[in-house]
Amino acid sequence: MAESKFKGFGKPPEGTGHRLWHYTLNTAHIMDLRSKFYPPDSLKPLVPIARRALREGAAVCPLPEPLDSYKVKLTAIDEAAVFDIYGARDLILTTNALAWTEDGAAECWEIFERLYLKMSGEFGVLGAMRAPAMPEQLPWLATFVLPNPEAMPLSWLASVEQSLAVTIIEQSAQGAG
């Protein structure tokens, strides 16, 4: 595993972490992240982004340093969220959907699937041979990577997506909205 630019993200001690399933639509790959550890200090810089979106319904914010040339656009919907990670040139690198309840999953997936199929049709290279199936286990994070050369060398991107997802879920559970 390549070393992350975002301090604190990496291989966890076994048996620790949050339950989260990460589904990459381009590849139909599902990662079980139950053993990934998210150190509280690494999630702390993401808390203001999550709280703002949960409170106001949406937020557009730079990522924490040293990734502050990138930004996230986050929309919170009932018990779910959608967010885009933008590159330094203000192009979308990935689009993500996050659900942690059955009600949130149904609403979020409908929006995300429609967007994914639309984008697949526009770009024709996202890997959509058929409509994707909604992940069966909650909570889940679904991602698709857009055909943007800026996204290709960013080994830290999945860690940031997953960490933001965990932070949103935690903040929602604490009533941050």
Rank of each mutant, 00 (worst) to 15 (best):
I168F: 02
I168P: 02
E122H: 15
A2G: 01
R89L: 14
D68S: 10
A50C: 08
K5V: 07
W156T: 09
D68E: 08
P153L: 14
K36A: 08
V125N: 12
L46E: 04
G124Y: 11
E136K: 14
I111F: 12
L157N: 01
L67R: 02
H18Y: 12
E136Q: 15
M119L: 15
P39G: 10
P66R: 12
T75R: 15
V125R: 14
P62N: 12
D90T: 09
S42D: 04
S155F: 07
L74P: 07
F6K: 07
W156F: 12
G177V: 01
G104I: 00
A151W: 01
E65P: 05
G57W: 04
W21E: 06
M152E: 13
R51G: 03
W21P: 02
A88V: 11
S163M: 10
L25P: 03
A133W: 09
L115T: 15
A53L: 03
I49E: 00
L138V: 09
Q171L: 03
S155P: 01
A97L: 00
V145Y: 06
S35W: 05
R55A: 09
T27E: 11
S172V: 02
L126E: 08
L157V: 06
I169K: 02
I111Q: 10
A80D: 03
T95S: 15
Y38L: 00
A165E: 03
M119E: 14
A50W: 03
G10S: 06
A158P: 02
M129T: 11
L25E: 05
M31E: 11
T16F: 10
E161H: 08
E107A: 09
R89T: 12
A28M: 04
